[in-house]
Design a protein around this nucleic acid. Structure first.
Length: 262
DNA sequence: AGTACCACCTGACGGC
DNA sequence: TGCCGTCAGGTGGTAC
């Protein structure tokens, strides 16, 4: 479930487990996850190296190698990391296996193969190539407002546009809109300063709350939409029914009573 | 330039 | 039980 909070949790996990250890072996089980790099090249770039630090931009995770290059990870819709000693209980869909000199292994897991890994030389260049907007965990209000005003169509679509804001995906955009009490189809151009302030603070609040709870939906406050994000479930505020609506190809869940259209 | 839809994959789940 | 359609937390390409 990798949106910004999930990837931030992975980043901290990587920090806590995998830094400063020499990579002894690399095994690519499914080459499909490689982005603009060959299996041989990825192995050459990782073997004998160690990860020294991590960075994240939106849903992209980067680990700096002691060579100065960066190991890039993106998780698609189904992705995870696992650090473990034994390979006996290896999780399914492990696509990349990094074995450290200490005997432990880091597994990159991707069921639907929509994620990508690579080695890049410059994170800033990578961000520029992908045209990623500012990370919403770090963005300040002025920037947030100016970017949002550039948006045109549905508010939900703008929030999820990684070129405007990096990090918000389908689930958390619904949560932000629910907490800001705005309809997902609200036209961006119709927002007033009060709406934008509310969106900014709810974006921060939702991201921070999600990270604090390990991006685990089961740990979310019951007053959030996420635990009730299914068609027909009761809205935690007004007991009206949560409704599903397709917006630019994705399912938006919202409460039609609480989230008025502007 | 912006927006909408499909493709990429592998399931999980509900209805019949 | 089994088959079928739909949906699933992302992104990039293509067609307007």
């Amino acid at each position: 479930m990798p949106e910004l909070p999930d990837v931030e949790v992975y980043r901290r996990y990587l920090d806590a487990t995998s830094l400063h250890q020499e990579i002894a072996e690399v095994e690519i089980r499914t080459a499909k996850i490689l982005e603009d790099i060959s299996s041989a090249r990825l192995k050459r770039d990782l073997k004998g190296r160690s990860m020294e630090a991590t960075r994240r931009r939106g849903k992209y995770l980067f680990a700096e190698l002691d060579s100065g290059k960066w190991f890039m990870m993106h998780f698609g819709m189904t992705g995870d990391l696992a650090y473990q000693k034994s390979l006996e209980d290896e999780p399914p869909y492990s696509r990349l296996l990094i074995s450290f000199r200490n005997g432990y292994h880091l597994l990159y897991i991707s069921r639907r193969l929509l994620g990508k890994v690579s080695v890049i030389s410059d994170v800033e260049v990578f961000i520029k190539d992908k045209e990623l907007g500012p990370d919403v965990l770090e963005i300040d209000y002025e920037t947030f407002r100016n970017i949002l005003k550039r948006g045109r169509g549905a508010l939900k679509t703008a929030l999820m546009n990684q070129k405007l804001f990096a990090g918000i995906g389908n689930v958390y955009s619904d949560e932000i809109l629910f907490r800001a009490r705005l309809h997902p189809k609200t036209r961006v151009g119709n927002l007033d300063e009060g709406h934008i302030k509310e969106l900014f603070s709810k974006t921060k609040e939702v991201m921070e709350t999600a990270i604090e709870n390990g991006a685990d939906p089961d740990k979310f406050p019951r007053s959030y939409l996420l635990p009730h994000r299914r068609e027909g479930e009761k809205c935690p505020y007004c007991k009206d029914s949560v409704t599903r609506m397709k917006i630019s190809g994705r399912s938006a869940y919202f409460c039609p009573a609480c989230q008025s259209k502007n």
